[in-house]
Each structure stands twice: as structure tokens, then as C-alpha cells.
């Protein structure tokens, strides 16, 4: 294993704890946006798709890389829009709070 991989492993372990800590504060009320927001964040997979497609040389690699980019782009935009739509409904800054 390369030194880079060990570094990545350290970073990964720390990220797991950060994820756990950050999420354990989220109230039940926001479980859906939390899920769809984290869904959006793993849309970073699009970056991976771009890198492999960018480096692809054979037609087969290019075809599969293109699939990765399309799916990753769907993940990231869909995840974002869904989260934003849900959070917009919880946003009270636009409408006055309190009973009518």
C-alpha cells in the first residue's frame, strides 16, 4: 500500500467520526432533509466520474465513464433540488410565523 493510501485511511477514519458527531445533533423533524442532503453530498461521486472519464482511453472505458458521469450528475442535481425543495417548506423567513 502506498503512503497516500495510508493518509486516505487516516482521513477516512476521522471523517466517519465527524459524520457521526454532526448527524447525532439533527432532530427527527429534519430527518428527511438530512437524508436527502447527505444523498446530495455523496454526489461528489460525479468528481470521481469526471476523473475516470477524463483519463479513459478505450471506447469501453469511455462508455462506462460516461454512464458514471450521467448517473453522478443525476445524483448531485436531483439530490440538491429535492433537499432544497424540502427545506424551503421548513423555511419561515418568507412567511410570518404564528397562527393566522
Amino acid at each position: 500500500m502506498s503512503a497516500d493510501l495510508w493518509t486516505a485511511l487516516f482521513i477516512g477514519i476521522l471523517s466517519a467520526f465527524v459524520g457521526y458527531e454532526v448527524i447525532s445533533r439533527v432532530p427527527v423533524l429534519l430527518h428527511t432533509p438530512l437524508m436527502s442532503g447527505s444523498n446530495f453530498i455523496h454526489g461528489i461521486v460525479l468528481v470521481g466520474g469526471i476523473v475516470v472519464l477524463g483519463l479513459a482511453t478505450t471506447p469501453l472505458e469511455e462508455a462506462i465513464g460516461l454512464v458514471a458521469v450521467i448517473m453522478g450528475a443525476m445524483n448531485v442535481t436531483g439530490g440538491y433540488v429535492v433537499t432544497e425543495r424540502i427545506l424551503a417548506m421548513f423555511d419561515r423567513s418568507k412567511k410570518k410565523a404564528g397562527p393566522p
Partner: peptide, 16 residues
Amino acid sequence: AGYALVVAGTLVGAAG
């Protein structure tokens, strides 16, 4: 690019 995937992926993996 791999590091970005490692951090974001693990973050979501732990949260999920």
C-alpha cells in the same frame, strides 16, 4: 480527487 470522495463518502456512510 480521491481524497474528496473518501471524506464525503465516509461522512455520508457514517451519517446513513
